[in-house]
Amino acid sequence: MKILVTVKEVATVEDEFEIEGTEIADQYLGADLNEWDDYAVEEAVQLQEAGIADEVVTVTIGPEDCEQTIRQALAKGADRAIRVWDDALEGVDLLDVEAKTEILRGVVEEEDPDLVLSGVQSGDDSWGATGVSLAEDLGFEWAAVVNHLEHDLEDGIASVRRELEGGVEELTDVELPAVLTIQTGINEPRYASLRGIRQAQRKELDVQSLADVGVDEGVVDSDLELTDMYEPESESDVTVWEGSAEETAGELGDLLRDKGVAP
């Protein structure tokens, strides 16, 4: 069985930052492997260690700068990586779900995996939609927000749990091939070992253009346009209660009674 894991380098933002136009100024941005993708990589590597997966391949859409981040997945045990980039993608400030779907479809069709794991969402723009969109586009099955995957995958079925709201999990059987979007907490992502990090430098990282994955440059034309970015208005008009613990607890007690929620 072959597993493809979609991974993304996400921008992280310092506590204090400035906005320039519709972007956060560069000097306040850092970069990291998307948290959800880290769990997806770990799940794939565990399936490989259990002898269920033969090969784990990662795919990302990103510029050369992100290679160091993408190699983290190789250091944790993925076998090889694909990075799709193209001059046409340079400077695009909103790569929408449709575009990501089309690009990733090209890679999936080429790689022909049995299972695609993606993170539930990315920590920066948080669309949370690409995995399911991709599955539908491919004619694969899917399950969103998976927080448990049975490691047998026999008879072409993935038995999963989906993390619904309110502390309820849905127990679902998904026919393969499928895309599963992986929720944090499904496993405990490992730290890359020094040996893993060294090995990762030698693993294959294949760079492909849009043409290589059979996608027209027009894919970047989006119906969506990012028109504004701003800091949410702060509602910091906190009333600080002063005094002894008894006095401040008394103030809070009065508040609860005023609100009508005290017993």
Partner: peptide, 9 residues
Amino acid sequence: LDYAPAVAN
């Protein structure tokens, strides 16, 4: 999130 992206696509 388990069906809206599929509907859109």
